[in-house]
Simulated scan of single mutants.
Amino acid sequence: MTRIIVADDHTLVRAGLQRILAGSENLEVVGEAANGAQAMALLEQTPCDVLLLDLSMPGRSGIDLIVQIKASFPRLAILVLTMHGEEQYAVRALKAGAAGYMTKECAPAELVLAVRKVVAGGVYLSLAMAERIASELATSTVDTPGYRRLSDREFDVFLMLARGLTVSDIGDNLCVSAKTVSTYKARVMQKLDLRSQTELVHYAIKHNLLRDEL
């Protein structure tokens, strides 16, 4: 029996995932968490084989959380299930230690397939995401784009700003102060040599980082 913990801050999403997985042979949801802190506490108390993880829960950055979890539970397979379809998120998640990455638009059958693959020691990416990553690698130049040099938290803030969220909105999403977000914003602007919010949005569009919003 494959034991699964679902970590997502939306109750309806957790309930839907529970139904999908419970209807599949040899898969059992043994716990649910609504944020990173709950996920860590649950993992310490409840043995499991796969963590189904949303990247956008309140609190600690999803990428940071993956690093923390893998440090404490190196044998745990982490399968990211998220709204973020940008390949840069997928690359960062895999580098941090995730065994798979898929968006919430996936079909139930694909989710079950992904869980079975990562628990067997494999890596799972949807075909569309794999093609995006391969295309980016094939077309990349020797010069590394500036956005790849952003830290994981800076990249989070950068994309939220590009989507039109205010500093206060971002602070609420990440459970940090507006002052902290402003510091990250200043670092992003400096690293990318941008002078205004408009330039930041244009930069994100130019590098196809908002393709799911267009």
Results as ranks from 00 to 15, higher is better:
Thr2Met: 12
Asp8Ile: 03
Leu12Val: 15
Val13Ser: 05
Ala15Pro: 00
Ile20Met: 11
Ser24Phe: 04
Asn26Asp: 15
Leu27Lys: 02
Gly31Ala: 08
Ala33Leu: 03
Gly36Ala: 05
Gly36Thr: 02
Ala37Trp: 03
Gln38Met: 14
Pro47Ser: 14
Cys48Val: 08
Leu53Gln: 07
Leu53Gly: 07
Met57Leu: 07
Met57Thr: 01
Gly59Leu: 04
Gly59Phe: 07
Arg60His: 06
Arg60Met: 14
Ser61Val: 02
Val67Gln: 13
Gln68Ala: 15
Phe73Leu: 06
Leu76Tyr: 11
Ile78Trp: 04
Leu81Ile: 12
His84Met: 10
Gly85Tyr: 01
Gly85Phe: 00
Glu87His: 12
Gln88Tyr: 01
Tyr89Asn: 05
Ala93Gly: 07
Lys95Asn: 15
Gly100Gln: 04
Met102Lys: 00
Cys106Met: 08
Pro108Thr: 06
Ala109Gln: 15
Val112Cys: 10
Ala114Cys: 02
Val115Glu: 06
Val115Lys: 05
Val119Met: 06
Ala120Ile: 00
Ala120Cys: 06
Ala120Met: 07
Gly122Asn: 12
Ser126Glu: 09
Met129His: 05
Ala130Glu: 12
Ile133Gln: 03
Thr141Ser: 14
Thr144Lys: 14
Thr144Ala: 13
Tyr147Val: 01
Phe155Trp: 01
Asp156Ser: 09
Phe158Asn: 07
Phe158Asp: 09
Leu159Val: 03
Leu161Trp: 09
Arg163Tyr: 10
Leu165Gln: 15
Ile170Glu: 12
Ile170Cys: 13
Asn173Met: 13
Leu174Arg: 12
Ser177Gln: 11
Ser177Glu: 11
Lys179Ala: 15
Ala186Pro: 00
Arg187Phe: 09
Val188Arg: 09
Val188Ser: 08
Gln190Met: 09
Leu192Asn: 09
Leu194Asn: 07
Gln197Gly: 00
Leu200Pro: 04
Leu200Arg: 10
Val201Ser: 07
Tyr203Glu: 08
Tyr203Lys: 07
Ala204Phe: 06
Asn208Lys: 15
Leu209Glu: 05
Leu210Met: 14
